[in-house]
Amino acid sequence: MSATTSGRTPATRKRRRLYAVLAGLTMLGVAAALVLTAFQDNIVFFYSPTDLKEKELHPNQFLRLGGLVEEGSVKKASDGVTTEFIITDLSNTVAVRYTGLLPDLFREGQGVVSQGRLGPDGIFVATEVLAKHDENYMPPEVADALKKSGQWKEPSK
């Protein structure tokens, strides 16, 4: 066997391979963590209204803005296809204008991700609006009952 020619017993060779695999995996994990942390900003799919305020973004930069559609803020413009609404992360808000079809899940109080540019007037002009849903699934009757009994938990975003 080749084990004897190389002067090592098969058992130590196996242990050596085990350590090599473990060391390799650890280094790989560390490297992956470092890379992902370094590219944190590029992996993020959307910015919140607070991010938009805190981060110095280029004016007219194309970006995605995400948050909740503020209750009572959705207004249909007179042309029938333009919608204006306010995106909130419960600490900051941004007004959004969008012309086009909205997804089925778009409604007040629901999560939304819009793609577009922040105009000089502070209004975010969106070219695309995507709805985001949360991780809660339940039948409509259960949702109604929860709301009635006051046990409804508002989305905490």
Binding site: I43, F45, L101, L102, P103, D104, L105, F106, E128, V129, L130, A131, K132, H133
Partner: peptide, 12 residues
């Protein structure tokens, strides 16, 4: 497509 309004997005 019906829920979010897109077939595909490059999210994480």
């Amino acid at each position: 497509k019906p829920m979010w309004g897109t077939w595909w997005e490059w999210d994480a």
